[in-house]
Computed example of a mutant assay.
Amino acid sequence: MKYSKTILIVDDEPRTREGLKKTLETWAGSSYEIVTAENGDDALAFIAERPVHLMLTDIRMPEMNGLSLIHAIKEQGRNPVVILLSGYSEFEYAQEGIKLGVVNYLLKPITKAKLIEAVEQALLVCDSRERAGTIEKIVDHQLMEAKQHDVRMPQPIQAAIQYVEAHVQLPVSLREVADHVHLNASYFSSLFKEKMGMNFSEFLTRSKIQAAKKLLLSTSLPITAIAEEVGYQSTKYFMTLFKEYEGMTPSQYRKDVPKGDIV
């Protein structure tokens, strides 16, 4: 069964650990995978092998406490949303948790209603992070940097940018765009490179690749169809360009990048 997200419960008390798991399994149904670890080392080993979206961890555990576990996870380059659990009202722990990005702090014993409310709120944070991460992966920063000053650019260059963005699904040519903005093709080419910091061909390709990345993450269209949607008749040529600019094939990109809600 493929779950949308994995929730990890880390607690050295078997009764508490299993109680939390049972409550969340009843609430989650088949939507989320609920797994447990009895100590920090087991949690680290699990997270090293598989993605964990939300972690609930006790603060006081032998050998590695909850805060040390969060530090170790961050050193692995992982960043699950975290809820801290404690049998004690320890404000200094809560403060340190906030610095580490913990989204909630629950005191034991935890009622089912409080637990589920906290988990639902934490999953919203998780969704928000995924959307932000996805948008970050889609955006071509060189393209954005080139375009960020477009309000101060000559009107023909602004018009050319708008034309490319409106016709990204077509095999647009430099001469076609130069004609559209009523400039000689050679002069337009020089002016575009001077003002944008990249030549027209690179701008066009980056625009098409960025549009393709959005389609790869927001649809299940085959690669051939996506190539056509961004104006490439040759799928092989599209794949070559994509790998040149992104360092991976379109299929690898679709597989490796987390899918948030694309807008």
Rank of each mutant, 00 (worst) to 15 (best):
S186G: 04
E244F: 10
D140M: 08
G247Q: 09
V230S: 04
E130N: 06
I262D: 07
E229V: 00
N184G: 11
A166C: 02
S31C: 01
D150Q: 11
Y253M: 05
E63M: 01
S31Q: 13
R129Y: 14
V10Q: 05
E75S: 05
A225L: 10
Y32W: 06
T240I: 04
L204H: 01
L174G: 08
R50L: 06
L84C: 10
I7R: 01
I73K: 04
G231K: 08
L183I: 03
V181R: 03
K255Q: 14
K213N: 02
D261N: 12
V139G: 00
H71L: 00
Q233K: 14
Q148T: 10
G197L: 11
R78W: 00
L183D: 01
L124S: 01
N104G: 00
E25N: 00
L174H: 04
A211G: 05
F91D: 05
F46R: 14
K193R: 15
Y245T: 05
A166M: 08
M248Y: 07
L183N: 01
D140V: 07
I47F: 05
Q121G: 03
I70F: 01
T26P: 00
Q148R: 14
D256V: 07
A211S: 15
S89G: 13
L217G: 05
K255S: 13
T224H: 10
P156W: 11
A43E: 07
R254F: 05
E120N: 08
I161E: 02
A227M: 12
A94R: 09
V172Y: 08
F192P: 04
G197K: 12
K137W: 08
H180Y: 15
R175C: 03
T235K: 15
P156E: 11
L20W: 02
A45S: 12
Y187L: 14
E136T: 15
T205S: 06
N184K: 12
D12M: 05
D11S: 03
S4K: 15
Q162H: 13
N79I: 00
K114R: 13
L107E: 07
V81A: 05
R15E: 12
V35N: 01
Q210S: 06
T249P: 08
P51Q: 12
M61Y: 03
K2A: 13
D261H: 11
S30L: 06
D256H: 11
P80Y: 03
E145D: 12
L241H: 12
L44S: 05
L215Q: 11
E145F: 11
T23A: 13
K137E: 15
Q252C: 04
H180S: 09
L84S: 02
I135L: 14
M55A: 11
A43Y: 08
D12C: 06
L67G: 06
Q121A: 11
S220K: 13
I209G: 04
P250N: 03
Y163K: 04
Q252E: 15
Q142F: 10
V172M: 14
R206H: 03
